[in-house]
Amino acid sequence: MTSGLMTAREAGLIACVRCGLLHEKKIHECTRCGAYLESRDATSIQRVWALLFAGMITFVPANVLPMLKTNTLVEHSESTIIGGVFELIHHGSIGIAAIVFIASILIPVGKFIAIAYLAISVQRKSTLNQHQRHKLYEVVEFIGRWSMIDVFVVAILSALVQLDTIASINPGVAAFSFALSVIFTILSAQSFDARLIWDTDRTAHAK
């Protein structure tokens, strides 16, 4: 399946993760940019799991606690992420409701599952669907930042809607824990060393 293609590691070389320059195995510091050289990131999977759990834990208060606190002349209301989505549907903005729902619920949950699947498949030395798994990794890396939309919406609304007594909007605790959750999951995806996906089938072939 992989005949004709050979990796830097098989050639006895290490590629610098920062600048890409290739070195012989015995060298430990990149001669061009000074980064530490390692053929594969040995602590990758550990860091992926740790940061993924941190992201999952902070995702709970992000959904349970209020995201927005609205004060108007007649009422005081607090809304959670999902509450905000229902409000938008109620006002008839189905498209925007869909954007918020996808960015704040579907993408984060999908990312948790995708990262966990990638980590487990690498740990089990799976040789299945390597191309699909690599694609999945690229998608996860690309899409992660877009979850920040709702945090920015809250920030813009609370800066914009400050009209003394008539109406004011303030951020709730959830805005902060949601931002943390997104940051942790981005870091988790970054810690994943994609080369590990491709390693397993080569080591299997070699034996």
Binding site: M6, T7, A8, L13, H23, H134, W198
Partner: peptide, 19 residues
């Protein structure tokens, strides 16, 4: 060994390590 082109001319894929 010794038959590789100069290291400066090589590039390894950052995502899958293919040379």
């Amino acid at each position: 060994p010794n038959a590789l082109p100069p290291l400066r001319d090589l590039v390894a894929c950052p995502q899958c390590d293919t040379l």
